[in-house]
């Protein structure tokens, strides 16, 4: 298993190095990519990134929940949730993990 979690810093670092874009610009591009992708998901109800996967917004209806501590019934208002369906290409790439770990 990879020991460490990949974060923005790592992405900015590798963009700076491999794509020869100044650090600050790399960071700006990354932020804009994430912001634009988020907007696309929210406004269009999803986003499809070829060879990676699809983000899908699901509309959840009204339902009755229960406060697990008090047992009190509460109404859960309709909301939206986001799921990610990985492409077959990505799923297949994870097949090698079990051998490695």
């Amino acid at each position: 298993m990879a020991a460490r979690t990949l974060t923005r810093i790592d992405l900015v670092e590798s963009m700076t190095r491999q794509l020869d874009i100044p650090r600050q610009r790399s960071s700006d591009v990354l932020e804009t990519v994430l912001k634009t992708l988020s907007q696309g998901i929210v406004e269009e109800g999803g986003a499809k990134i070829a060879s990676f996967g699809t983000f899908v917004v699901h509309e959840k209806g009204n339902r009755v929940g229960r406060n697990p501590r008090t047992g009190e019934e509460v109404e859960i208002t309709p909301r939206k949730s986001l799921s990610f369906r990985a492409s077959h290409i990505l799923k297949n790439r994870l097949q090698s993990v079990k051998k490695a770990s």
Partner: peptide, 10 residues
């Protein structure tokens, strides 16, 4: 990162 069993946090 995922294919090495890792995690990406944004």
């Amino acid at each position: 990162t995922l294919s090495k069993g890792g995690r990406v946090e944004l």
